[in-house]
């Protein structure tokens, strides 16, 4: 498996990145860890005449935690997320999810930015970021803009990011309440058969808010507002769980693949979500 030839660019700053993007348009792609892109290039399923490696661009690798929000640079790796003690304490769902992504070697290289930006429906971080109501910072020739994770995904590999833009950071409010990232997969290194991200706030004995997003059950991550709403104000009892699951099932649209047929995926999605809610609620 040998990729086609390409020109390699390793700019030192964002200006340099944008200059290459500007010059080559569609022919240029930015690469973070490369663990999604390089296999595609080796299989000659991605044609990238100009490859822009972001590793030397400053300011993309920080994790900044403030009183009410968290900012994660696009080049922060899954391993960085796992190893960051403060992040694990303020937003433990990130670590729980990151540990379920790929394998150790891939987590050293794979970045949060790459994971959310490339639009692969199998990736875990997009659904997670939707659950956490994150905002993506995009930088382009026109300057900087923000797009909510919940508005970012249009179709498989199609996102709100323009070809000439770079996703530089993810900002999210400090998560509140209980959490769970529940994922069923065939083995380590596999994408999800179904995965659910749940963040839930307990207000007295009832649910004060709940955010729910699902992974690999549609051609985009699925933020199920209705599923969250079904829990709101309830004691997260069996009836509430059933209506949350049923609301979620209305929002997903899985397709058959080697992991199984649609009926199976829908069933597992329901089971996984129920377990995620129960676990999150127990931690709330």
């Amino acid at each position: 498996m040998i990729p086609a030839a390409f020109e390699y660019h390793r700019p030192k700053d964002m200006e340099g990145v944008l200059a290459v993007l500007n010059e080559h348009g569609d022919d240029a792609r930015v690469m973070a860890g490369g663990h999604s892109l390089i296999p595609m290039m080796k299989l000659r399923m991605a044609d990238v005449p100009h490859l822009i490696d972001l590793q030397d661009v400053g300011g993309l690798s920080g994790i900044d935690i403030s009183a009410d929000s968290i900012r994660i640079g696009a080049m922060v790796t899954q391993a960085d997320i796992i190893d960051h003690a403060e992040l694990a304490s303020v937003a433990p769902i990130l670590r729980e999810a990151a540990l379920q992504i790929a394998d150790p070697q891939v987590r050293y290289m794979g970045t949060v930015g790459g994971n959310v930006a490339n639009g692969d429906p199998g990736n875990d971080m997009p659904g997670l970021m939707q659950c956490l109501d994150a905002t993506f910072t995009l930088v382009g020739a026109e300057g900087e803009r923000s797009v909510a994770a919940r508005d970012f995904y249009e179709a498989a590999y199609m996102t709100a990011r323009e070809d000439e833009e770079v996703l530089t950071a993810i900002t999210l409010p400090r998560p509140q309440g209980g959490y769970a990232y529940e994922k069923q997969k065939r083995k380590i290194g596999d994408y999800a058969t179904a995965a659910a991200a749940v963040q839930i706030v307990k207000d007295g004995n009832v649910c004060g808010s709940a955010a729910i997003a699902m992974t690999n059950l549609s051609d985009v991550p699925v933020f199920s507002e209705a599923a969250g709403a079904a829990l709101f104000g309830t004691s997260v009892d069996d009836t509430a769980l059933k209506s949350a699951v049923s609301a979620m099932l209305d929002d997903i649209d899985p397709t058959e693949d080697n992991r199984g047929p649609v009926a199976f995926k829908r069933h597992v999605a329901g089971v996984i979500l129920r377990r995620a809610i129960e676990r999150a609620w127990s931690r709330a």
Partner: peptide
């Protein structure tokens, strides 16, 4: 870092 060297270009 432990890295899979089949998924890294020498340029990187």
């Amino acid at each position: 870092k432990s890295v899979k060297s089949c998924t890294m270009f020498v340029a990187q």
